[in-house]
């Protein structure tokens, strides 16, 4: 299960991109749902994200993130109509409930809740893609030019997690065989039992961190100005993807400022798309978002294209 959640070399198009290119694309997938509230845009971006996840063989990973993300999304969907009585189209009246009293459920509030839930899922999708498609070392490598200490810290912390997991389960097994039953006892007793494990982990990480520090010292860490090893060739595909991501961001900001990508929920649901300009901006933004996926599809299919980009 866990292995789906993290980066694994799957030889996909997105993984083959330069870290800056994939980061800009994922930034578009993350930022667009943050400043757009238009349901059509949000649905399309969510679908594009899903398409990206499926073509990048990250479906299993996405599903794992979904199991976490679905409940808050559903909660958003349900809570908004319960808490907000704005909107003109009354669907039904709820009998008085404890704490919140009687409520009017409106179509507008329900739609707004659904859109917020969708927005949340779209953001989760962007994060799922980040975790499955982006090699952490490449990002830290990218950052290390500007903030190498933070980059190194991230790397060390990342390395610690699997070690700690392994140590925790080993220590737990050992203590179980010594008669410690982690499943019984009241909350205080159980906390105490886990406290022992935590203490074990703390001591062993402290001992381990000294060893790591020593190994770093022996490899001349901090002996003067560092250089940075970046071996990420930039290809045509990286330009294409970054440009289309920037285009998507720029176009949607422009459309939002000019009111082409706005949608009115209250007091009554507005028209989905207003006029030719509305359709134009929608199509342009979606094309920019989909372009990297289309290129990726061709990259996977035609060796000729692969060799050219």
């Amino acid at each position: 299960m866990l292995k789906h959640l993290y980066y694994r070399d799957r030889g996909t198009f997105l993984q083959s991109l330069h870290p800056a290119a994939i980061l800009s694309y994922l930034a578009a997938l993350l930022l667009l749902p943050l400043f757009l509230t238009h349901p059509l845009y949000l649905v399309s971006i969510l679908l594009a994200g899903l398409l990206a996840a499926f073509t990048a063989e990250a479906a299993a990973g996405w599903c794992a993130y979904l199991t976490v993300g679905l409940w808050p999304a559903l909660l958003l969907l349900l809570m908004n109509p319960l808490l907000s009585s704005n909107g003109h189209t009354v669907l039904f009246l709820l009998p008085p409930l404890p704490f919140i009293g009687g409520r009017t459920i409106t179509l507008e509030a329900l739609c707004y809740g659904a859109v917020m839930g969708m927005r949340f899922l779209a953001i989760i999708t962007a994060f799922a893609l980040y975790n499955t498609q982006v090699h952490p070392d490449r990002v830290t490598g990218l950052l290390s030019r500007f903030a190498w200490k933070s980059a190194l810290l991230v790397s060390l912390a990342t390395r610690m997690i699997p070690t700690l997991t392994r140590e925790l389960s080993a220590a737990r097994e050992v203590q179980q065989l010594r008669g410690v039953d982690f499943g019984t006892g009241n909350l205080r007793q159980r906390l105490q039992k886990y406290g022992w494990l935590l203490e074990l982990l703390l001591v062993s990480s402290l001992e381990g961190s000294l060893q790591t520090a020593e190994a770093m010292q022996a490899r001349a860490f901090g002996s003067g100005p560092r250089s940075s090893y970046l071996r990420n060739p930039v290809r045509l595909r990286d330009y294409l993807c970054s440009c289309s991501a920037l285009a998507a961001l720029f176009l949607s900001i422009y459309a939002r400022v000019r009111g082409y990508a706005d949608f009115t929920f209250y007091p009554q649901l507005g028209r989905l798309v207003d006029g030719v300009s509305g359709w134009f901006f929608y199509s342009a933004v979606m094309l920019s978002i989909l372009l990297p996926l289309i290129i990726g599809w061709g990259w996977q299919r035609w060796p000729y294209l692969r060799s050219k980009i």
């Binding site: 952490p136 190994a215 490899r219 001349a220 940075s228 970046l230």
Partner: peptide, 25 residues
């Protein structure tokens, strides 16, 4: 072997010491 590695990837690990020495790329 566990505690003396610093970076998350193999190539990054080899590069770590070289970066510390400030070698040209």
């Amino acid at each position: 072997p566990e505690r003396q590695l610093v970076m998350t990837s193999v190539e990054g690990e080899i590069a770590f010491g070289l970066e510390n020495l400030g070698l040209p790329r």
